[in-house]
Design a protein around this nucleic acid. Sequence first.
DNA 1: TATTTATGCAACCATTTGGTTGCATAATGT
DNA 2: ACATTATGCAACCAAATGGTTGCATAAATA
Lengths: 107, 107
Amino acid sequence: MIEAQIYKALGDPVRLQIITRLAAGSPYTIGELSKNLGISRQGARKQLQVLVSANLVHLSQKGRETEVVLDTDKLTIAKQFITNIEQQWDLRLQALKDFVENNPTKK
Amino acid sequence: MIEAQIYKALGDPVRLQIITRLAAGSPYTIGELSKNLGISRQGARKQLQVLVSANLVHLSQKGRETEVVLDTDKLTIAKQFITNIEQQWDLRLQALKDFVENNPTKK
DNA sequence: TATTTATGCAACCATTTGGTTGCATAATGT
DNA sequence: ACATTATGCAACCAAATGGTTGCATAAATA
């Protein structure tokens, strides 16, 4: 279950907020991104690091600033996992339905 | 960010394993499901509870057994969130591409 | 050159998490 | 009736998490 780390990284409101902002309005610097999250800059930086470690974003140094860039590959993997689960589940429900239809309760 | 709780619940290999098994071969009882996860029954039960609390699965009492059923609604919400992020991100990339094309670097 | 700005690093702290063991109990099987 | 099975509940524990503050430093600006 490699996906666990990705979901874990997504499993925090501050981090989801960061992802949302990045998708909407990059490029962002660490400093900008750390504002208005309700926590300190260093607090925000730690959350950002979780996203970096999960490869959901990457950083690129620009002079004294650091640009934060969204990386959608891992998001796609996470989405694919859910799609697969849903698909298997639907197959099962369909199989169950077929079974019921072919084996009517005797009156 | 309501999705955070869902992702958090998905963010553990044992819990992903449980979800995967449920999608593949329900109905499962708590006892069956707790086997072969590499942890104790009570340990597995605690992980299962996390999924219940996040409404990813629900339980239904059957005599002395408890049936565990997958609930795909929350999964769908989680998937939708990712889809939205990807979409916004693609829009941005496209806008950036257009900008570059209409503003060629002067030779 | 002096100051401000963007950032990093580390120590610290309370709470949550992921696991354990031990014991209780209600439903089922013999 | 007795034993077994499926489960719940609670206490406990180490490690991880989510936050803080304080201090250091390199780059940009005045």
